[in-house]
């Protein structure tokens, strides 16, 4: 078991290195000269050369890469071309916002997915309607869901807010509004934040929820067909005992890895949806960065979200090994 975990951790490190190397290469070969971007178009040649030497841009490529890696380890994500500030300072406010959105989206996606899977096992009409909603929603681009959501729930019904994370300003210690509000005992603020969260989280959850639902449904069905489920029934266990001990555990294994993988789609959806809901997170920041060719910012965002994705998936892999002893040897 320890060896299994060690092997997973090793591959985690390798994948993270590949991601950083890719981003480093892209940054190095981007069409924009970072020195000029920082000093501006009118800077003189001597100043450019001086800064170039100071930033280590004259060093061989591998030296630059190690500098870059070393910087990352110390939290140095580069300097934004736009704000002329370290990217890490800009991101401090945005990362918790996007993470909160992503986690809320994942929770909704799993709930919807599980419901979807269970409805496929029944023939009732209203459930078919629910399935139709998820099926159509998953074929729609995230931005359409956002736009329609605003029109319906904000403009027409007036139930939900259409922009921002909360009606109040300011932030608490963690910058996760839900956690901060709980820490501060601010009940109204907590529900206000949830109120703001529902619509954007729902928009990014629908696509992944269908994937989760489909896989869980087929996994449930095939697990129910296994001989050992029949054995469990033959022992005279009750339905809930059979499902609880012999079906759910074995059927959830593929779903678990899928949840990890869907985080990638979830983050991409968040980048889009934040623009519609003026959600002050990485997506909004990313759009600005793309418009201004702010490469350090783009690469930092990709790195943070990518690393999150990779970490979660490594954790899921290890968790699966704990659930299913057969996977440990592979």
């Amino acid at each position: 078991m320890l060896k299994f975990i060690a092997r997973r951790l090793l591959s985690l490190v390798i994948i993270l290195l590949v991601l950083t190397f890719l981003l480093f290469l892209m940054q190095t070969y981007s069409p924009i000269d970072p020195v000029r971007a920082i000093l501006g178009e009118k800077a003189n040649a001597a100043a450019l050369a001086a800064l170039r030497a100071k930033m280590g841009l004259d060093d061989p490529l591998y030296v630059q890469y190690f500098h870059y890696l070393g910087g990352l380890l110390h939290g140095d994500l580069g300097v934004s071309y736009r704000s002329r500030q370290p990217v890490i300072d800009d991101l401090k406010a945005f990362v918790p916002a996007t993470l909160e959105l992503g986690i809320a989206g994942m929770v909704i996606a799993v709930i919807l997915g599980v419901i979807f899977a269970l409805t496929t096992l029944s023939r009732s009409k209203p459930l078919a309607l629910f399935r139709g909603f998820i099926l159509t929603g998953a074929a729609a681009p995230t931005f359409l869901l956002g736009v329609l959501g605003v029109i319906l729930f904000y403009k027409t019904l007036g139930w939900l807010p259409a922009s921002g994370r909360s009606s109040e300003s300011g932030h608490g210690p963690t910058r996760f509004l839900l956690i901060d509000d709980i820490l501060a005992g601010n009940i109204t603020g907590f529900f206000d934040a949830i109120h703001h969260l529902i619509l954007p989280a729902l928009c990014i959850a629908i696509g992944p929820s269908l994937v989760i639902g489909r896989v869980f449904a087929s996994s449930l069905r095939s697990t129910l067909d296994y001989d050992y489920v029949r054995t469990a029934q033959a022992k005279g266990l009750t339905g809930s005992q059979v499902v609880g001990r012999h079906v759910i555990r074995n059927a959830s294994s593929p779903v678990l890895s899928l949840v990890g993988l869907q985080i990638g789609a979830m983050f991409a959806g968040a980048l889009v949806v934040e623009n519609i809901f003026s959600w002050p997170g990485l997506g909004l920041y990313m759009s600005g960065a793309i418009g201004a060719s702010d490469f350090p910012a783009i690469s930092a965002i990709t790195l943070i979200l990518g690393a999150g994705y990779i970490l979660v998936n490594a954790a899921v892999d290890i968790l699966q090994g704990v659930i299913d002893p057969r996977l440990r040897v592979a």
């Binding site: 390798i14 590949v18 985080i263 980048l271 990709t302 979200l305 994705y309 990779i310």
Partner: peptide, 21 residues
């Protein structure tokens, strides 16, 4: 496998952002 281990949509966005729209 390395490519599969990366978040596809995010990497695509980064690549296009660097190459230019």
């Amino acid at each position: 496998d390395l490519f599969l281990a990366l978040p596809a949509a995010l990497v695509a966005i980064a690549i296009v952002a660097f190459l230019g729209p």
